[in-house]
Structure formats: structure tokens, C-alpha cells
Design a protein around this nucleic acid. Structure first.
Lengths: 201, 201
DNA sequence: GACTTGACTGAACATCGCTAACTTAGCGGC
DNA sequence: GCCGCTAAGTTAGCGATGTTCAGTCAAGTC
């Protein structure tokens, strides 16, 4: 049923088309049978969310695996995050752009993809590129990546200029802004920060 | 009917509760009467979107009106944008976090709030703080503001640390990242850019 | 063999967006 | 004074949705 729901979501490209009847028909059972395995339609969608989050997690992991340094790894994570969202727009919409369904999937987020992002941030702090609360830094990066991804998904009619470049530039903007901003009252000058950043590319 | 829909949205706090029957009951007419004024339920929601965008536009305008300089105006716009979204979460969700409904409201966006944002970007370019395509710069700022706003709205259960500070810090991150990044291959050094930025605060 | 348990089904319910057919009121022209 | 026309509103109903309920059927257990 879970797989049927995800496939249906990908094929139709719209959440409304994923009705319990459609899922049941695809699986080959009757509608009420779904309620024997999921408490609710929301529960089914929550299961889909968990699955998508796991896929996103591995996508970010593989993208950052062969990065030459933590800074590039962070950038690769951001870019792969956005590309994953654009490749699975409806799944991403369900996970990140809806009412969170009473139940807090915060643990899912924290333990999965966001945890991996935090590792990258910690590595950059260890390298002296970033400074401050890792969670805070990670949330800002997350906001930037999620921002450009969800904008591109929610407004496909907008005359976007060069999507790939825009995504990469947005991630870079967040990175340099974070690096320069977090080290501002520090002993390191912006010149040296940017020089370090360029050396890592 | 438009007002009834918006009030209903604010009171119930969930889009699902805004049914044509609920709107009709609140207005005091029968359900099909709505179709005499709106082609569709989507048309009603589109009208709501236009209204919300206009409110967002004036909110950003008033917030940036008494800023001491274009750079601070841009920051004020970003912060007020996010606060408007947090004050009207369900309205913001309808406008920015759904399927864009076939019809492109791109003109709405371009002419309204985004146009005002572009003015701010152009002023900063004139000041020598930013450089490059104004639309591109504006989109990145928009992505950052929308990112943190929609994250806060979509994941209210997440243990967010100090919302106001996080919002402001995210906007600042985007600003400095944009300024430093857009001037990188230029004659101005990061040191001087950041110094200029600090002088403007 | 009686009993429990779990997966499953058909029928039904309330609600949703939406449509068709009909009624009513107001207005200008002859 | 009556006609035709338009705008606004109505009742009744359609198909689809999420959800619940009573009942069926096979497998396992004592």
C-alpha cells in the first residue's frame, strides 16, 4: 500500500489523485482494508513522508560522500537536497509543505537528513570555517535550500532564470553569508574567510 | 464571500475547513450562488491569494518606508515578509505552498511585493553594495525569506530556537552572502564590502 | 470441535465540489 | 400593461471522497 501510494503520487503528480480508493484498486484490495494497516489516510501519508525522508537522507549522503572537504560536502548536500526535491516535487510537497499532521515528525527530521547536515556543519566548525551553534547554522542552511526548492516547486509558471545556476548560487550565498556572518566579531577578517573558502573549491 | 473565506481561514486555521458550504452558510446564501461570482472554488482561493499578496505588499512597503538606507530597507522588507507569513500562516500557505492552480499568478507576484523587493535591490545596486542581475538577486533573497517562513509554518512542532533571532539572522545571512558573493570577482575586497555593510546598520 | 484472532469485504454515512433546472426580481421597449 | 431579457438566487441531485460498521472467511489454539 505504501509503495502504491508513492507510485500513484509520482505518476499522477498531484496529491489529490492519491485517494484511498485509488490505492486500494492498485493494491487489489477493498478500501476498508487500508484501515487495517494504517489508522488514517494521514497515517499512510506520514509513512510516505518517512520513506521520502529516508531517500532524501541517502541522496544527500551519497552526494557528499566524495566531496574533497567538509565545505564542498556541505555544498553538495545542499545542491542534492534541492535536486531531490525537484525530482520528486509532489513527495517533497507532502513532506515539507503541509500541515505536519498534529503528530510531530521532528525526531525523523533530526535523526535523518538533518542529522547528516549537522555533521557537515560540525566538520566545517572543526575546520574553522563556521562558528556558533551547529543547530542554528544548520537551520539557516536548511532554510535557504528549502526556500529555493519549495519556490521552484510551488511556482513552476514563474519565469525562472537558469534553474541549476540559481540553485547553486543560492546555496553558495547561504554558505558565504553564514561563514562571513558567523565569524564577524572574530579575529578573522572577511578577506581571509573568503580566501579560505575559495581555496576549498 | 471573499471576506467570509478569509475569515474562515483565519478562524479555523486550516484550509480544509474552508468549504463552499461553510462560506455560503456564513454569507447567508446557498452554495451554488458562489458560482455566480466565482467560476470555481479555485477562483475563490485565487482571489484570496491576490488579497493576501496585496496585504503582504503594503506590509513590506510600510516596514521599509522609514529605513535609514536601502540596505536596511531590504532587511526590513525581509523581516516583515517573514513576520507577515507567521501572522497569517494559513493564508501564506495557500499563496506560496500549493499547486499554483494552472493559472500563473506570476504577474501578481511580479507587479506587487516582488516588484517592491526589486526596487530595494536596485537601490542597493545603485549604492554599490550589490551587483548583477536584479531579478536574480531578488529571487535569492526571496528564497531565503520564504525558506525560513515556510519552514516555521510547516514544522511548528520542531523545537525552533528563538524564532525572531533566527529569522533576522537568516535574512542577514542572505544579505551578506549576496553582497560578498556578487562582488567577488570585482575590485572591491570582502573586507571593504563588510565594512560598508556595517556602516549602514 | 469450540473459540479466538486477524485480514478482508459490502453497504452505508456524511461531506465535499459541482451542475441542471427552475423561480424571482428588476429593467427597457412597444 | 404586457413582453423579453438578464442577473441573482433557489432546490435537488450527481459523483467522489474519507470513514465506520456489521459480517465473512481462513488459520491457529486449547
Amino acid at each position: 500500500m505504501l509503495r502504491a501510494a508513492m507510485d500513484l503520487l509520482r505518476e499522477t503528480g498531484s496529491e489529490e489523485s492519491v485517494s484511498l480508493r485509488a490505492v486500494a484498486a492498485r493494491v487489489g484490495v477493498s478500501v476498508p482494508s487500508i484501515y487495517l494497516h494504517f489508522a488514517d489516510k494521514q497515517a499512510l501519508l506520514d509513512a510516505v513522508c518517512a520513506e521520502v525522508f529516508e531517500q532524501l537522507h541517502v541522496a544527500m549522503k551519497t552526494a557528499s560522500a566524495d566531496a574533497p572537504n567538509p565545505w564542498e560536502a556541505l555544498r553538495a548536500m545542499g545542491v542534492s537536497y534541492v535536486h531531490f526535491a525537484l525530482d520528486n516535487p509532489e513527495h517533497y510537497r507532502i513532506v515539507m509543505m503541509r500541515g505536519s499532521s498534529e503528530q510531530a515528525p521532528a525526531d525523523e527530521i533530526a535523526s535523518g537528513a538533518f542529522g547528516h547536515l549537522l555533521d557537515g556543519v560540525l566538520a566545517c566548525i572543526g575546520l574553522g570555517i563556521l562558528e556558533g551553534d551547529p543547530v542554528d547554522l544548520g537551520l539557516k542552511l536548511w532554510a535557504a535550500a528549502h526556500g529555493i526548492a519549495s519556490l521552484l516547486i510551488a511556482k513552476p509558471r514563474f519565469p525562472w532564470p537558469q534553474v541549476d545556476e540559481l540553485v547553486d548560487a543560492t546555496i553558495c550565498m547561504a554558505g558565504t553569508g553564514l561563514a562571513v556572518g558567523s565569524r564577524l566579531p572574530d579575529e578573522l577578517s572577511p578577506d581571509e574567510i573568503v580566501k579560505r573558502l575559495e581555496k576549498l573549491r
